[in-house]
Design a binder for these strands. Structure first.
Lengths: 247, 247
DNA sequence: TTTTCATTGCGTAATAATGACGCAATAATA
DNA sequence: TATTATTGCGTCATTATTACGCAATGAAAA
């Protein structure tokens, strides 16, 4: 990392959501020399767009390209950043002492959330300042550095609001999925329970699903049908959003 | 402006919306030594939160406090900023030559939109780099510096989407207003026309309006009732948003 | 092989919301 | 006093939502 080659004062933090075992999970990095975790993030190279850099961070951690990625908020409190999570890294020579003044700046950070298919991230990659990287279920997020708790919470609300406007499942579910799986995703994001039969009718009325004709066998009950998203209709729905309110 | 006292690389641009004569208008500054206009904006003092600084910019230009202000997007293209609008100002000694290197940085800018009651901004105040400041109707925005056209367009879309979730009129209309005035505001923001009778029913069903009992006299037709917003219900609606989609 | 079980797919009835209108009432003006 | 433009209120058909009932069906237990 060539620090003179970066946009000063601004960082990126990514809340990478996955869905597994009926839970929303986020990808977190365990800081070296500390019990705290952090969001995947980084700084912006002077020759890259901010959006580009966010996509790059995501690619670096997950190996994935063309991820659904959305900027949701700039966190700009005057006192939000400090060097307490960096100092142990410098002491233990994980980072060079010369990097201290870079981290000692005031940073605003721009939050992005990403939606990825959990199973497609087989081997997430930690960075040099981290021991490991792992998916953490939202209910039991560990202790985080800086304001990263707040960033995750903000992302969660942003995702929840988005869900009422636009379809979201395409990015979080595998290619084929059952109606109960889709419903569980919605219930998790919305933090509520929905009537099975009404959910089914409503989501089908959006016209973005295709029945594959196949069924998910194996469970001790009636086998649910497998659906995929109709790519064309889905893209249209993402573009135009759902009708709501006055429009 | 003490440039060493500012967060580098990040600026603020404010799209200040007002509503007058059935048109949405934005407050723009005419650059000195140029035919171009710009959004009110500025840089972030190291001892201020970004949100605080945005509110400060608004106060400086409009004299108003407690303005509805919402961050909507970070514009972070690598090549979005340049010094072409600054050079004439330095040549004519409007800005000191020493400020060139500050403006020659790459800047990302965080966009805020503000909603203000048009009539309450009696004397908007230009800055030292501007000849004048004026309300411009959205349909005829003049030539703007940098990516300010794009910023306004983005703000407009953000406002439009917001309108489907939360009430907006409180900040754009005078204390008392008629149903047709409110409808005209909605139609302008949504860029559509709405049935008068259905709009009335829907907006009343939200329970955020109070009939003052008074009427707006003077026109050659039946005098429309004057309404105000029910502060308690309105605040509740802003907080919780309107029901829509799945939730 | 048959029964049991959990769960799906489909359906229905009551209620609420929406879209497209009709029409009498009314403030200013001719 | 009649005319004009526009408001406030109401109706009716259609669509959406809510709250359920029930037969069908894979797998597992009897």
């Amino acid at each position: 990392m060539l620090l003179h080659n970066l946009l000063p004062g601004l960082s990126i933090d990514c809340v990478i959501f996955g869905f597994h075992q009926n839970e929303l999970r986020v990808l977190l990095l365990k800081m070296k020399q500390s019990e705290r975790w952090s969001l995947p993030g980084g700084f912006i190279r002077l020759d890259r767009d901010v959006d580009e850099e966010a996509a790059h961070i995501l690619h670096t951690r997950t190996g994935l390209d063309n991820i659904f990625l959305k900027q949701f908020h700039l966190f700009g409190k005057q006192n939000r950043s400090n060097t307490s999570h960096i100092e142990p890294l410098i002491e233990q020579n994980v980072l060079p002492a010369s990097s201290f003044q870079w981290f000692d700046q005031r940073f605003a950070t721009i939050g992005y959330y990403a939606l990825v298919e959990y199973a497609s991230v087989t081997q997430p990659i930690a960075d040099t300042t981290s021991d490991c990287i792992a998916w953490c279920p939202l209910p039991d997020i560990p202790s985080l550095i800086l304001d990263h708790h707040q960033i995750i919470e903000h992302a969660r609300v942003a995702l929840k609001e988005e869900l009422n406007f636009r379809p979201v499942g395409r990015n979080l579910l595998p290619d084929e999925f059952t109606m109960p799986e889709l419903q569980s995703l919605y219930e998790t994001i919305l933090e509520t329970s929905l009537d099975r039969r009404n959910f089914r009718r409503k989501i089908l009325s959006l016209g973005i699903l295709k029945d594959t004709g196949k069924k998910r066998l194996g469970a001790a009950n009636k086998a649910p049908s497998l659906y995929t998203f109709d790519e064309v209709k889905y893209a249209e729905a993402v573009e135009k959003g759902f009708k709501s309110g006055f429009l």
